[in-house]
């Protein structure tokens, strides 16, 4: 069954599954919205071959048509990060959060979240990240205990947090 785009009613051509802290999110985008978010779509001509090669390295799992995501700021791809060992710009970390998260966790003896100093301008972000981690941990616990009603509430809190609601602790405990 063909899915429609998350942002409009056009049929989606990009399908991606993102797992954040054990929570699975699906992304379905039409060509126009995919390009807006930095996905490079293959064309019928030469570049498609290049894209295919890159995909082989990037190990991106997506249903056809296959795509290579690039950083909208500096055009870096995960393939080039793997080749050089270097990231292109700070925005790459947002664009490739999951891919880089796996690389970083392996290099950092399993650690995946920053602890320590932070710039003053990032204080609110740090609070949100701490709350996100706490909710993710509670979600894993709720799922393990088969407390699905509680898990659904926690998931709603996580979605609200991602959409910009304040990082409060209310309504997460069972």
């Amino acid at each position: 069954m063909s899915r429609s785009c998350d942002s409009c009613s056009t049929p989606a051509v990009v399908h991606e599954t993102i797992v954040t802290d054990g929570v699975k999110t699906e992304v379905h985008l039409c060509a126009a919205h995919a390009q807006q978010r930095g996905y490079i779509l293959p064309t019928a001509t030469g570049p498609a071959l290049v894209v295919g090669k890159l995909l082989a390295h990037a190990q991106v799992h997506a249903s056809a048509p296959r795509v290579v995501k690039s950083c909208p700021t500096c055009a870096t791809t995960m393939a080039s990060v793997r080749e050089s060992g270097l990231v292109g710009c700070p925005d790459c970390y947002r664009q490739f959060e999951e891919e880089l998260g796996a690389v970083i966790s392996r290099a950092q003896a399993g650690a995946s979240v920053h602890v320590g100093r932070h710039p003053t301008h990032a204080a609110n972000l740090v609070d949100r990240a701490a709350m996100r981690n706490k909710l993710a941990s509670e979600l894993r616990e709720a799922i393990a205990r088969e407390e699905y009603m509680r898990a659904a509430k926690i998931r709603d809190r996580m979605i609200a947090l991602n959409e910009g609601e304040p990082a409060t602790e209310s309504g997460t405990s069972s």
């Binding site: 990060v81 060992g85 270097l86 990231v87 700070p90 970390y93 947002r94 959060e97 880089l100 998260g101 690389v103 970083i104 290099a107 950092q108 650690a111 995946s112 979240v113 920053h114 602890v115 320590g116 100093r117 932070h118 710039p119 301008h121 990032a122 972000l125 740090v126 949100r128 990240a129 996100r132």
Partner: peptide, 19 residues
């Protein structure tokens, strides 16, 4: 300074992020 709530201070080499 470039900072990410999950990865901390951002660096060119992903293995140096965090502190």
């Amino acid at each position: 300074f470039a900072f990410h709530p999950r990865f901390g201070y951002l660096t060119a080499c992903p293995t140096n992020v965090g502190t």
